[in-house]
Simulated assay, not measured.
Amino acid sequence: MTLLVSLTTQTNQALPSAAAWRSAVEYAAALLHRGGIIALPTDTVYGLACLAQNKQALRKLFQIKERTNDKPIALCIGAIQEITKYGKVDLKIIPLLNSLLPGPVTLLFEAWPMDKEGIANSHLVAIRMPDHPFILQVAQLCNGAIALTSANKSRAPSCLKVEEFKPLWCDLDAVFDEGKLGTIDPMRLGSTIIDLSIEGSFKIVRNGCALNDVKKILSIF
């Protein structure tokens, strides 16, 4: 039976106590370490997550999404310096990364040689560091990157409320509910995707919800 965990108080949608919040973070990380798949809020829409290095969990995540193997899933990290574990980063763009992250963007890098099943498309790897305290704290507790994708079937609309993906609940170990999202991404556009894999250049691959802010940041660098 899937456990529904509230990340707000029942009365005013405010954050719960620090102890209750920390308990939820630790529980989410523990489920991921045990090979579980959870739903949780991000800075854009609700997402599904598992540990990227757990191939069994990753395959189950693809099954839940009804996602084909040729569409890799992004890696969610808890700190900018972790990007270099998975992608080749030109040190000259570190100030750019500090301006973009955390935020509603997905960054593409040339991947280091690794087991790329489910997380890399040919030579590229996608990295997310959402601007949301819950998923960031969960990622920081996990020993390795989180595989992160939107909480919906492939080709179905993204979800701003947990009730919108209720048919998926039976396949999940827990759903962490923060109520209705949409402050940053009310149109469900998803993160803005930027290809940084070629040294000295960038390419916006998907406009997403942060396009205008991203353009302003990129114009500086």
Rank of each mutant, 00 (worst) to 15 (best):
T2E: 05
L3A: 15
L3Q: 15
S6E: 15
T11F: 12
T11E: 12
T11C: 08
N12P: 03
Q13T: 13
A14T: 14
L15M: 15
P16R: 10
W21T: 13
W21G: 07
S23A: 10
S23R: 06
S23V: 03
V25C: 13
E26M: 01
Y27L: 04
L31S: 08
L32Y: 05
H33S: 12
R34A: 11
G35W: 02
G36K: 03
A39D: 04
P41M: 11
T44N: 08
V45L: 11
Y46P: 04
Y46R: 00
Q53R: 13
N54F: 08
N54V: 10
K60R: 13
L61Y: 05
E66N: 13
R67L: 04
R67M: 01
T68N: 13
K71C: 05
P72E: 09
A74M: 05
C76R: 02
I77E: 04
I83H: 08
T84L: 00
T84K: 00
K85T: 14
Y86H: 11
G87A: 07
G87W: 05
G87I: 04
G87V: 07
G87E: 08
K88Y: 09
K92M: 12
I94G: 03
I94T: 10
L96D: 08
L97Y: 06
N98R: 15
S99G: 13
L101H: 10
P102T: 12
P104H: 04
E110V: 14
A111P: 13
A111I: 06
A111M: 12
W112Q: 15
W112M: 13
P113Q: 15
M114R: 11
D115S: 15
D115Q: 14
E117K: 01
G118Y: 00
G118M: 00
I119C: 07
N121C: 10
S122Q: 10
S122E: 11
I127F: 01
R128K: 05
M129V: 01
M129D: 00
H132E: 11
H132C: 04
I135W: 00
Q137R: 07
A139V: 12
A139Y: 06
Q140M: 03
Q140V: 07
G144T: 09
L148E: 11
L148G: 14
S150P: 02
N152P: 06
N152Q: 06
K153S: 04
K153W: 02
S154M: 02
S154G: 06
A156Q: 13
P157A: 07
L160P: 07
L160D: 06
E163T: 05
E163R: 03
F165H: 00
F165C: 00
K166T: 10
C170W: 00
D171F: 02
D173E: 07
A174S: 09
V175M: 01
V175P: 05
D177K: 05
G179V: 07
G179S: 10
L181M: 09
G182H: 10
I184T: 15
I184E: 12
P186M: 11
R188V: 04
G190H: 04
S191W: 07
I193A: 08
L196W: 05
S197N: 09
E199I: 13
K203C: 05
I204C: 15
V205E: 14
R206I: 03
N207H: 11
N207Y: 06
L218N: 09
S219Q: 15
I220T: 14
I220A: 11
I220H: 10
I220D: 12
F221E: 08
